[in-house]
Simulated scan of single mutants.
Amino acid sequence: MEKENQKNQKTQKTKTRVSKTWNLVRNFGLKAIPIMMVRNSLFEESELTLNFLVLIISSCLIATFGLVLNSAAVIIGAMIIAPLMLPLRGLSFATLEGDWQLLRRSFVSIAVGTLLGISCSWLVGTVIGFPEFGAQVLARTQPNLIDLLVAIVAGGISGFSKIRPSLEDAVPGTAIAVALMPPLCVVGLTLSQGEWTLSQGAFLLYITNLIGINLACMIVYVFSGYAQSTELSRSLNWGFSLVLIAVLVVPLGLTFWDVLEQGRVEEPVQELINKSPLFTRKGREVSDWKIDRKKNPPEIKMAVRSTQLITPEQVKEFEDAVEIKLGKRFKVKVDVTPFIPVESPNLKAN
């Protein structure tokens, strides 16, 4: 009996310590404003208003034109005014608190903003055409684990700035970091040109950002004391977000590994190109080259301008050099464009 009482006392002490630790963490300067003030503010921000629609269309058009022009500065301007971050914070709070009214309002705003962004960019791409995608478009079609980490950190800052009104100026910065609108515009642009694979990659980046921000905001709200333990256990979105994160880790991790592998291969290949007599002799210029690792064996495709003929034997020699350098067989294809250099006649000195 005495042993059982001692065991119960130890259990009670442990629970008390855990409770004190949790209260210490929860109240360590995070909870800055009352819960109803946060809820009312998020409810107002999540409303689908004319202002929201105008900002969505404006930011979409600016981002789309920036992608067409391949201008990072123009795209950053679109990120600053994009309002999607506001209802997304409301969605996180609503799912954590079980607030169906706020959940419905924020979800509708996000859904309408998403469809409107894709539609506007698709219309622009259809009207003006987009024969070749620039670096700003292609950079948003291959998301990886780093993008997920950026979304989580930016979402945490955005959620923290909401409960700390003095930090509201941080919202534009987090909007730039996580960039919700440009991936949507890339989806529309690539769909307008029938590039389904690129569209899937850009949409995956958008979903990654949404889930990362949602999970991070929920964590901030929990540590701020806006969710009791019973509410936390009832929050389906909490577990659902973790499952989605786990699902996303697989494709994002594979893409991240592919990027690392691509970088590991590109540097030695560039070194071989710079030193190879095939491409360094006078009258030859490598204008572009890329590696297609999806082929078996992988292919190195090169665009070369040359005043002289390039023979299959010479290409084979370069293939062998690549295999020796990388320890793996690559198929080299050279697209040769013949050209004749023409100069103006030398002028005689007076």
Score class of each variant (00 low, 15 high):
S19F: 09
L86C: 05
K316A: 14
E261C: 06
W289D: 01
V332R: 00
V286R: 00
G29I: 07
M85Y: 07
T114G: 05
A154G: 02
S46Q: 08
K294F: 15
T311W: 13
N350Y: 11
I340K: 13
G194H: 04
P341N: 10
V38A: 08
A154Q: 00
D169Y: 11
S166E: 14
L138T: 13
S233G: 02
C60T: 15
F65M: 12
F93Y: 14
R329P: 01
P182W: 04
V171Y: 12
A135E: 14
D169I: 13
W196A: 08
N346T: 14
K301R: 10
L69F: 15
M302R: 00
G225C: 07
L148C: 01
I219S: 13
L272R: 02
L347K: 10
I291D: 10
T11P: 00
L96N: 04
V74T: 11
K294Q: 12
E343N: 11
T64Q: 10
G283Y: 13
F65T: 07
L67N: 05
N346C: 11
E299F: 09
A32N: 15
P298F: 10
S199I: 06
D288A: 05
V286L: 01
V127K: 04
K282Y: 14
P87R: 03
R284N: 02
G173Y: 00
